[in-house]
Simulated assay, not measured.
Amino acid sequence: MLQGFGRLFNRHRTVFLSTMAAASRASSSRCASSMPPFKGKVELHVHLDGAMRPETLFDVATKRGLQLPASDAVALRKYCCYHEEDEHSLKRFLDSFDFFLPLIQGDLQAVERIAYEFCEDQAKSNILYSEPRFCPHLLATSVVWDHYVKRRYISEGQRIVDEQRPVVTPSDVVDAVCRGFDTGMADTGVMVRSILCCMTHRPDLSMEIVQLAEKFKDRGVVGIDLAGMEGAVPMDEHKPAFERARELSIHRTVHAGEIGVAKNVETAIETLHAERIGHGYAVVDNTRVYDFVKQQGTHLEACIYSSHLTGALKTFNIDHHPVKRWCDDRVNCSLSTDDPGVMQCTLEEEYVRGREQEGLTHEDEVRMVFNAARSCFLPSEEKKNLLCKLRDVHGEEPK
């Protein structure tokens, strides 16, 4: 059980996310010089725990008196961000989370701050609406988690966790995130709703995630996700929780087809009743599943930078991201960053990559924004209002 919970680090998103901050900054400069910012965006696939500012992590750790291998926030980036010179591997990426999650775990003030700053960062990126996701168990305290952290850090002579701190439950974490979002939305004007993540390695926790989503549905929690190492545990083991979520009208998205087979996407839709798929690149490898996704109108949440730089696309022997093919085929899809803090990138840069590297047109970009709005988990009236705001920015939706 301990080993399984430790592997929660083995991604709070399906697998292979890693990136190169220097390349990201270069892309940012191109964005500034080539075209004006693409305003009025919607982001559906972004992990809150992958969106933390290094400056905040350093400040929180310093205030908690935690020993760090860095003397300032700039130096801390070596450990909590991915860089061009780093090994491009899943292990290196996971090392980042393995390092910084214990710095904030069990600190509700820090969790609330991170949620607030997420709103600030989304506003700076001209994002009108987003649905950040997180697993509350990753930020709570528990006997299992503490044992894992102690094994990971104290054995190396680093006292990262205060053994006397009060217990913080997953419910406490969701409450803190909601508070941070509420204040952030009021101060910035962005709209945020949250998604709670089940973890592939822990199907025994999935029903609790559904219960939390139901408990906090009036506080902005609009859905659940399944994240983690794709294929490590059969999706069927999460079926009871996702069926219960459907009974409660809790929306559902599932990480599938990122490095796994196309059948995973089909299973996510048919067995877990997924309304959206995180990544889903494997569909290009299977004509039947691809046609099924198009027929169902299932929304595919694409993240160009993470999939390209971590080698996820090599699984399917394709040179270019499938997002352009999806756009040409009028597949219901959109762009997101995935983990902007670890990757040190923005959604604006994701659009630049789509334009410069994958050949996306402005019409493709606008259509994807409207796709995201139509496929978001807002109630119908709020969704209509969001679509009206997008029309004010972009005009009528492309055909």
Rank of each mutant, 00 (worst) to 15 (best):
139 L>W: 08
191 M>E: 09
271 T>K: 10
227 A>H: 00
389 K>G: 00
42 V>Y: 01
214 E>D: 15
176 A>M: 10
124 K>N: 11
131 E>N: 07
261 V>Y: 07
163 E>P: 11
69 P>F: 07
211 Q>R: 14
7 R>I: 05
157 G>A: 04
318 I>M: 07
334 S>P: 05
92 R>D: 11
251 H>I: 03
263 K>D: 12
136 P>E: 00
77 R>K: 14
216 F>M: 05
75 A>T: 12
119 C>H: 07
79 Y>G: 02
176 A>W: 02
213 A>R: 00
152 R>W: 08
1 M>N: 11
100 F>T: 03
319 D>C: 10
350 E>F: 06
383 K>D: 03
318 I>E: 03
90 L>H: 13
47 H>P: 05
201 H>R: 05
214 E>N: 15
275 E>R: 12
44 L>A: 05
50 G>L: 02
200 T>M: 09
207 M>T: 15
257 G>R: 12
336 S>E: 09
231 G>Q: 06
343 M>P: 00
63 K>M: 03
242 F>M: 13
186 A>P: 00
286 N>K: 05
297 G>V: 10
180 G>E: 09
351 Y>V: 15
280 G>Q: 05
48 L>A: 09
107 D>S: 06
24 S>Y: 02
185 M>G: 05
48 L>K: 04
210 V>I: 11
214 E>F: 09
228 G>S: 08
111 V>C: 02
398 P>T: 13
352 V>D: 02
396 E>S: 12
320 H>I: 07
386 L>D: 03
215 K>V: 08
9 F>K: 03
180 G>D: 11
305 Y>Q: 13
237 E>T: 13
138 L>S: 14
158 Q>F: 13
245 A>M: 05
222 V>G: 03
10 N>I: 10
143 V>P: 02
365 E>C: 15
57 L>N: 01
7 R>S: 10
6 G>Y: 13
339 D>R: 01
360 L>Y: 14
29 S>Q: 12
250 I>G: 04
306 S>N: 09
86 D>I: 09
323 V>K: 00
136 P>M: 00
88 H>A: 14
221 V>Q: 00
235 M>H: 07
387 L>A: 09
372 A>Q: 09
194 S>Q: 11
299 H>G: 09
395 G>R: 06
24 S>E: 10
285 D>T: 08
240 P>W: 05
221 V>P: 00
48 L>I: 11
104 I>C: 03
369 V>F: 01
191 M>R: 12
188 T>C: 03
41 K>D: 02
244 R>W: 07
324 K>M: 06
185 M>L: 04
345 C>D: 12
11 R>F: 12
247 E>A: 14
236 D>P: 00
187 D>M: 07
35 M>N: 05
336 S>Y: 04
140 A>G: 02
62 T>M: 02
398 P>A: 10
395 G>Y: 05
343 M>H: 10
50 G>D: 03
147 H>I: 08
160 I>N: 06
177 V>D: 00
320 H>P: 00
210 V>G: 01
276 R>E: 13
137 H>W: 11
100 F>R: 01
326 W>G: 14
71 S>I: 08
122 Q>K: 14
399 K>G: 13
365 E>H: 14
311 G>K: 08
125 S>E: 14
52 M>C: 11
158 Q>L: 14
17 L>N: 14
297 G>H: 10
339 D>P: 03
59 D>H: 05
360 L>I: 14
374 R>Y: 12
